[in-house]
Write a protein that binds this DNA or RNA. Structure first.
Lengths: 332, 332
DNA sequence: ACCTAACTTTGAAACGATTCAATCTAGAAT
DNA sequence: ATTCTAGATTGAATCGTTTCAAAGTTAGGT
């Protein structure tokens, strides 16, 4: 079926070692031979068997990117940044989607371990640091994306979520809003928790203001809509007059529930601020005020950190933190 | 560094063959031995080397999904469907993003060939049928997604884009619109071409109506916005009073250019209909009327077809065509 | 013509699993 | 006690590369 290096060697009248050299170290082979071998390769349709190569060479050229919500444009933008950087370095990035399932997160990590990928870029969903430590000992480095390492063991690329939360809350406070609602969850997700904490800290400085938490089971459009429907039914007196959504997907869901039904006006009755500044924020039913994260740049940076660790496993983990940025549109 | 099956065998006091059997055919091994070997595996932290396994067994458990725009929610929904189905079958799906680059499309196909993946799910960007035929001969089957095989050589899962175009155009015509604009491109992309042709055929039946084509270089939000800006500048007399966008991303871009600036009203001055019915369509600045495709179901179906071909390479290619559905919201 | 140094080429030994024919149990049946 | 059988275990061969010491080749200098 598929021809091997041995077939090529036979066809070209050289030894297998020479064919391998043509493939990997062409400079060691005379140009005459290179040409002859190349010709045989083409004629036989030879394709290197990566499994065999990897087995012997012990080194893979692929990097895995594991995210918990591939449908979130923030992650696709990040993936794009990582991919572009990887292409430049000669790596290939394969993507895997955890779909907010710890089980799947683990089974993908198992897969990557068996595949001996060169490294892992991960935006963790569950508690995986221990697992990643084991992988590191095993020779597979990882870089955390959009989340910092609790024990400084891993390099990470993140955004200062606490600062982002503060910026968001302050913006709402400056607008004169006092009854603020935070919508997002689960609160165990560090990104969500930090944004919330940032908002809470901002509230400290404004004695009159209150913050109510509307916890959701995921940060999706659907969950946002569900929360929005509940908020819509509240009495005007106790209903928040401003909402801070844990991300833009949730914010869009809120918009759907609050505005699309015509029951409330944004931002007049209720202001909404999102997080991530995804492409769709501009074109939301009410263009969304949001907190921008440099997604593509984050992906690119993460890949560079990973490459450094892959080349030198003893390298000290580095932590890169980007600052978020307020983007004011119409919703708040 | 990492222990091999031989180490495990030594540690457990059995032969390598037995360890392998514990891993792959536990029923052939006495439960006493299974337990002992498992214990050694845990103590040594043994992880099977997939490269070696694949080399010998000649069979991979991963399936590749190659799309040309991972940022398009239609594809992420499709990917999600495929992943769920794959998990059920014991396969793993890895995603790769072509980013609308023929070069990258080819280099990923090269990678998958070297990796001897079990099969490929592909939404092709460039002209790859020949390449895929070669892969098939090589033992790697593929299933086309969102596009039919020109020569019936591959199984495919698609939506009747021609019908979708007709439905969209008819809806606009029923609304009394006569100067219709089609926005999308490149026109070489079959999905785009078919949708356009479907619209043109619908127009045939309405003598008074005209169709103008605004070709874009990609079906993205940005390209849609650019096209929208041009349309905005046209004189009211020659400006279309209805637009059919090749997909929702383009439609959202159009909305940004036309509505967000306050210059035109949708649908009063100009109606807009999109395609795909992505999640964000509901929450667009003007909730988007669109043509729905059953994205997750398509992914799931594609995976099943692929599995069939993987099990029986001589199987006749099957073509599954779903029918699109009109979803009326406010933009048209 | 001979020596050297620099290139080329060779081929056997890994890499770590799976496979399978052959051997070895242990208990049942005679 | 002996034979039989089904199940359990073994270990060498194999998959297709890369690697690297050794052998072979070439050409330049004397």
């Amino acid at each position: 079926m598929s021809s091997s290096i041995k077939d090529v060697a036979l066809h070209a009248g050289v030894s297998v070692g020479t064919v391998s050299n043509v493939l990997n170290h062409p400079s060691r082979v005379s140009s005459k031979t290179v040409k002859r071998v190349q010709k045989s390769i083409n004629e036989l349709g030879f394709v290197r068997n990566d499994a065999a190569r990897q087995l012997r060479a012990g080194e893979s050229r692929t990097i895995a990117l594991l995210v918990f919500d591939a449908a979130n444009p923030f992650f696709t933008a990040l993936a794009r940044g990582a991919e572009d950087a990887a292409t430049d370095e000669g790596y290939s990035v394969i993507l895997a989607n955890t779909s907010e399932s710890q089980e799947r997160e683990h089974s993908y990590l198992d897969l990557f371990e068996e595949q001996r990928v060169r490294g892992i870029l991960i935006s963790p969903y569950g508690d995986v640091e221990e697992r990643l430590s084991a992988l590191k000992k095993f020779g597979i480095p990882s870089v955390l994306v959009d989340r910092v390492s609790e024990n400084q063991v891993f390099s990470s690329v993140s955004v200062d979520d606490h600062a982002g939360g503060t910026i968001a809350a302050n913006h709402l406070l400056n607008l004169g809003r006092t009854r603020i609602g935070f919508v997002g969850g689960p609160l165990e997700i560090p990104q969500v928790a930090d944004r919330l904490r940032g908002a809470q800290d901002a509230l400290q400085a404004s004695p009159g203001a209150t913050l109510t938490i509307f916890e959701t089971s995921a940060t999706t459009v659907l969950e946002g809509r569900t929360a929005g429907e509940k908020i819509r039914e509240m009495s005007p007196a106790e209903r928040p007059n401003a909402l801070f959504a844990a991300n833009d997907l949730v914010a869009i869901g809120l918009l759907q529930a609050l505005v699309a039904t015509g029951s409330l006006r944004v931002p007049d009755d209720i202001a909404i601020i999102g997080y991530d500044d995804i492409d769709f924020a501009t074109s939301a039913i009410v263009p969304l005020t949001s907190i921008r994260q440099p997604s593509a740049l984050m992906g690119e940076t993460a890949l560079k950190l990973l490459r450094e660790e892959a080349l030198d496993p003893s390298k000290k983990p580095r932590r890169v933190v980007f600052q978020p940025e307020l983007v004011i549109r119409e919703s708040a």
